[in-house]
């Protein structure tokens, strides 16, 4: 495995609640190899989601550097950060974050459309839909899907631009146990079959068990 594919150097993030500073990340140093499956666990509010948001370019670190394959995302302007999110990472959220106004297929196609200006090739779309067992429901809207289905749609969307990194923020947190297992299985396959680098924030033991490495966080620090 390629070393230093994702590297966090001394990353600190402080939020302000009124006049009180809250340290979300406290001097985090982390190194994730290419193709590695890393699980991050810890109690609510320990900074897991902040960490994944910063890796995913959704949030910026206050201090420190986030190096992705040698490039420092903390130095990127908004335009480059947007392109990074669009092309190089796929993010899966706990609450799916699908656009209710778009149907399933359109939700999946969105990052591709933003990149290419056109819908993805039919073959690619159909392959993904078949793989995730969503083909029959491709014209349904999010409110017509179950939680597990919605999360599989979110995974398809994360994969449509073929990113090297998949970030999943408690993807099973809002699912029943069967659906949760399915999602974790998909993530495992993505690592094993496609060599994706996966960072999974999870509370579940099953999720942690699937990872190559489990990192524990507490009060913004990696233990």
């Amino acid at each position: 495995m390629e070393d230093h594919f994702i590297e966090l150097i001394n990353v600190t993030k402080i939020y302000h609640q009124g006049d009180n500073p809250v340290v979300a990340l406290d001097h985090i140093n982390l190194n994730i190899s290419k193709g590695e499956f890393v699980a991050i666990t810890g109690k609510s509010g320990c900074g897991k989601s902040t960490l994944i948001n910063i890796i995913g370019g959704l949030d910026s670190p206050g201090q420190g550097h986030v190096m992705i394959n040698g490039e420092d995302t903390s130095l990127m302007d908004d335009q480059r950060l947007t392109l990074y999110r669009r092309d190089r990472v796929g993010i899966i959220f706990q609450f799916f974050n699908l656009l209710p106004i778009l149907n399933l297929e359109e939700n999946i196609a969105l990052p591709y459309l933003l990149r290419e200006g056109s819908n993805p090739p039919t073959a690619k779309m159909e392959r993904l839909l078949h793989e995730m067992g969503l083909y029959e429901r491709r014209y349904h809207h999010p409110h017509e899907l179950s939680g597990g289905e919605m999360q599989r749609v979110a995974i398809c969307r994360a994969l449509i631009n073929d990113p090297a990194i998949i970030l999943a923020d408690e993807p099973t947190g809002n699912l029943d146990s069967v659906s949760g297992k399915q999602v974790l299985e998909i993530l495992r396959r993505l690592r094993n079959e496609q060599g994706k680098t996966i960072v999974l924030v999870t509370h579940s033991q099953e999720g942690a068990a699937m990872a190559d490495r489990v990192l524990r966080m507490h009060d913004g620090k990696l233990l």
Partner: peptide, 16 residues
């Protein structure tokens, strides 16, 4: 707002 956030998180740029 949330929809915009989602669009932005999957790659919609500010000018877009």
């Amino acid at each position: 707002r949330r929809e915009i956030g989602i669009l932005r998180s999957v790659g919609l740029t500010r000018p877009q």
